[in-house]
Structures are given as C-alpha cells and as structure tokens.
Nucleic acid binder design. Sequence first.
DNA 1: GAAGAGTACGAAAACGATTTCGTAATTAAA
DNA 2: TTTAATTACGAAATCGTTTTCGTACTCTTC
Lengths: 340, 340
Amino acid sequence: MENMNIKKLAKELNLSVSTVSKALHDSYEIKAETKEKVLALAKQLNYQPNPFASSLRRNSSKTIAVVIPEIAHNFFSLVINGIESIAEELKYHVLIYITHEIPEKEEQVIRHLLNGRVDGILISSSGTSNNNAHYHELVQKGIPFVFFDRANFDVDAPRVTTDDYQAGFQATEHLIKSQCKHFAFLSLSNQMSAINHRKDGFLAALKQYQIEPSHVHIIEAGTDETLSFQIIRDFLQPLPVSLGIFSSVEKLAIQTYHICKEINIKIPKQLKIISFSNLPTAALLNPALSTLTQPAFSIGKEAALLLFQSIKNKGKIQPITTLPNVVLKSTIFIRESTKM
Amino acid sequence: MENMNIKKLAKELNLSVSTVSKALHDSYEIKAETKEKVLALAKQLNYQPNPFASSLRRNSSKTIAVVIPEIAHNFFSLVINGIESIAEELKYHVLIYITHEIPEKEEQVIRHLLNGRVDGILISSSGTSNNNAHYHELVQKGIPFVFFDRANFDVDAPRVTTDDYQAGFQATEHLIKSQCKHFAFLSLSNQMSAINHRKDGFLAALKQYQIEPSHVHIIEAGTDETLSFQIIRDFLQPLPVSLGIFSSVEKLAIQTYHICKEINIKIPKQLKIISFSNLPTAALLNPALSTLTQPAFSIGKEAALLLFQSIKNKGKIQPITTLPNVVLKSTIFIRESTKM
DNA sequence: GAAGAGTACGAAAACGATTTCGTAATTAAA
DNA sequence: TTTAATTACGAAATCGTTTTCGTACTCTTC
C-alpha cells in the first residue's frame, strides 16, 4: 500500500478507472451519488493524482517559471511576492531560475524550458539586445511569456514596465533644481531596456536645462561587484564640484554610499544622490536616501496576470490587437541625500 | 512537425524507440557508431525529452521545493541563492512556496507535495511546535527534507542552523558591557526554534551577569506589520532607562529605527540596539546598526547538499548514524548603535 | 563444431493519469 | 409499441518516456 493511485482507488470502489477519473473531475457523465462515494473514499485514503501522469496526458504543467538576473535584491524579491500571490490563487507552481546577469545562462535556461516543463515564463532579461534568438524560439514553440522591468523590445511579447523615462527625467530635474553642476548617471550596462530608458530621461532633462555636455558623466559600472566599486571610486576621485548622481539601480547607490564613507565625501554637501530603489531602509540611511521607488509587488502581479491570460488564450484565435504593454508609475521620495 | 519526440526521432533514424532511448542514455548495449548517429540527429532536430514522461516513468522529478515564510527578506533571498547554486550544478529545478508565516499555509503546501511533485524539500518552518503531523507524513512517504534556520526539533530530519544560543549570549553580553540597565528581546513569536534559542542565550547572559529580572523584557511583536509597530511603540513609551535591545530578526530592528526616528529617541544615547540581520546597508544606517550576521548563502548551500545527499541515499539501508545537524557560526559586527 | 559468452538491437510492458468511444439500461417522444 | 434520446458507466487508446525481456548474430573456447 505504498502509494495510492487511481487504479487502487477504482478497485476499492468497484468502479472502473475511467469512472473514477470522471467523478473526480466532476463530469456530467457521473451521477451525484457515485461522485460522492468517490470523493469520500479519495479523501479518506488521501488520494492525490500523480502530477506527472496528469501533465503528460493533458500537456499542461500548472507551473510557470520566473527567470531573473538575481534574487538577493529587494526589487526582485518583491516582484516574486507579487507573482506568487497570483500563482497561489490559481494553484500554479512557481519555478525560479537565476541568471546572475549572465546572458548565456539566460539563454540556456530559456532553451531548456522549450521542453514543455512550464506553461509560461516571466522574464526580466539579462540578455543583450543583439541576442534574442531564444525568445523567438519561445514564440515559435508557442510558449507564452511576459517581460517585466527589463524587456527586449525587439520581441513580440507582453511587457510590464515602469515609467522609466519620466522617472529619470524627474529625478534629474530634481538634481538640477538642487543646484548640482555636474551630473552622473550610474548604469550597469547599456544593454538593459529599463536602465536605458532611465538614461534617456536623464539626458533629456539635462538637454532641456541646457547643461553643458562636458558636465555630464555616464558611468557604466557593470555587474561585477569588485569592478564596479573600483569604477565608481575612480570616478569620484577627484570629485567633480557640485556633483549630482542619478543611480539607475539600488546596488550602485549603496556602493556609492560605502565609498563616500570610506573616502570621506559628505552627502549631500559635496555630492547629492538619488537612486531607483526599493530599500525598506532608504529613510534610515545616513543620510536618508532620495529614491524612485517602483511598485515592485504590482509589477509581479500584473506580469503574472498577463501571463495567465495568454496561457488561457493559447491556441485560440487572437483578435488583432496591440500587445499588452502595462506601464506602472514609480514614486519619487525626496530625502536628505539631495538636500541643498 | 509540432513537437519532436523520441518516436519521430527513432523513425527518422530507422531505429527502434528503445535503441534511441538507450543511445541517448549512453547505454553499454549500444555501439559507439549508433550512439553518435543518434546524438547527432537529436541535436540537429533539437530533441528534448518530455520531462513529465520521464518523471512518470523514473519516478523522480529532478525538482526540489523550498518552503519559506517570506521572500522579501535579505536572509531568505540569500539562502535561496545558496540553494540555487547547488541545484543548478546538479541540474535540479527549484520550486518556491511562500507561507507568509501562516502555519496552515505551510501544512497545505507540504501536504500537496506528498503527491511526488518534488524529490525533496527544504523547509524553514512557519509551523508551531504543537503541529508537526505534516512533517511526519513526509517521513512516512519517504520524501527527504531538511530544515534550515527554523527547525522543528521534534521531527527526525537533518537541520542546518546557526549558533543562535551563543550569538544571543554574545550579543547580550555586549549590551551589558555597554552599560545597559534594562534589556529587551524582540521576538516574532515563541514558536520558532531559531528565535527561541536566541532568547535562551539572551536570558542566560542576563542571568550570568545577575541582571534583575524586573529589568528584563520579552516583547513578542508578532508577524503582522501594523500590530508589531504598535507593540514596539507602546513598549518604548515611556522609555526604560539605559535600554538595550536585542532584536531577533532584522525586520523588528528596522521598525524600531523607524519608531525611534518618529518619536525622537536617540540611538545609541538613549537606546542601544543590536540585531540579527543580513542587511547590506547595516553599516550605512543612521546610526550604523550592530548586527549578528548569519552566513545565509552557506546555510542554503549546506542545506541543499544535505538534501541531495538524502535524495541520493533514498531507499538504501542507512547505517545507524546521528542525524546530520550542521551548525554554522554567525558573525558579530559592533557598530554605532551599541556605542557607549 | 557444439556450447557458451558477448554484442547490438527490437517488441512490448510499464508509469498513472485523461479521454474517446462504445454500449447497456432507462426514459421520452411519436 | 416502436424509435429516439438520455443516463451512467467501462474498455481501451493515449501521452512520451524507460526498462525488461527476448533474440538474432558473432565470437570464443575446448
């Protein structure tokens, strides 16, 4: 009596396997009385259908994958929370894959998922813009997927992003109005959509306020921790006068704080900084960090909702409609780190 | 030609399905030449075995589950990173389930996983000590699982924890030597193993230094955010003189910081605080937070290693040995928040 | 040159569900 | 009363693998 299965259950009930299966799925073919008996014994014997047999036959896994660059990051953890809240409700399972910002790793994961292990995928891209073959293979295979935050705009897939351009513009305008004279944009790489939109907003604001181009600095710090520390440190020595930093990601802002502490640069006196961030401690930092905060939980929720929608519509003829493209608003929090 | 499968592959090769399967698994029964042909065509046609058919037949899923109370938490994200590093290496997949600190939710997840969806489970318990029936069902079903951080000590399963008692003792001793007169322990609940061990260390230190019992406060703040804010706020008004707080989890320390800011309590002058925490910004807070930091990544790694070991040994006769019980050391960082 | 061992493959069962199809028995319609 | 429809179930195919077993064929060995 190791494991319960539908065959033993049927035997116990003196019914055929097919009848039991139909009863468990509440089929109209089975009369109420029989259904009750089946349900009762199934519960009593603690019967749970084998998920693999079921997936094999039905060709659906009740599982989605989340592919993210990293997880030890407030933004992504919050997004996962949002995703999970929806998946849990729909009784879907959530597989996590971490690419560590390595495009090849992402390709490998995506290619693996072509085997049908999941019904859909949520992706925050680590890919470079010149490589999207793996996304197209997903399209070809008909596996639904949705981009969130970092999208690939050359691929026809739903997207959930934030108003990165506007937020970038707003943050930069704030720095300008705080009397900064030099402006730096801290970036991970120039291959990530969200970050590039932030940069575009940054540059647009500087242009509008006619900031001299020689006062504008784009720092690509990269994803390697040690290296990015060095790059930022080098940039800050010697320190440009009245420097205003707009950090496109939380991690680089934190590094900047560490460096300022180390080489004794006073924030906000000598250097002002504002950053995209979901840090719950932003207001408690020394000094409190001005942030642009994305609605991370909602991003996860919206992306999951879009994904489940396209899973449900799979195979059906789609009305020719524009691709879902949800854009959520970030919130700006002005704190001490950009005080005049 | 929708989907490639082994049958089509076999037909294409003029071989039987079984031969192809054996060739793909590098069986000794198949000669090298045939293997090469098979491998070549499989690669060319981009054949990937259906994971469900495979799991069904082999009765193994190449998947593990991670069951955690919450994810938007530095500690747990880092643990997941550690787990993933091992799983990825062994080509296992990782399912995430979040219980939101609700014991019933945990039971439900665990009971679901009895259906064989995963080969093993890593658990940081949200359960109360008086309810461990679901763990015993796992044992009965023979599904390997490992506890990390928060274990249930009434259940025979491997554990990976930290030296909570010692760390608690050490932290408290530090508060005592920093001239605190009143002492408070911030706890989520009295049902969580790790937290209770920390409390035991706390109490032991106070006893050893003969602190008057009336100067000792145990604050059970609970897991509800709004409620715990209120409980801590109430405790701090009026403020006990020379209060030293030992927070068993990061979240409560952050809340304490927020409250102190709000009602204008000066840290460390009026109140000293040390907390278990994996905050990357601990040193940047105002004031910098003294912490006990757990090796979260290693905890994840070790737990995963233990799990894969017991998955591998499953079914084999075990030598009668003591249960694996890895205890890792936390590191104490003394910073401004406990300065004299 | 007969027996035994080894090599290389194929047929078919098995994993545990779901689903299609067929069919007795009952009920309703003509 | 005959025919048609409905109800309630069962047999068997199916999903795509893996694995057991059987068997030709070649190669040794005495």
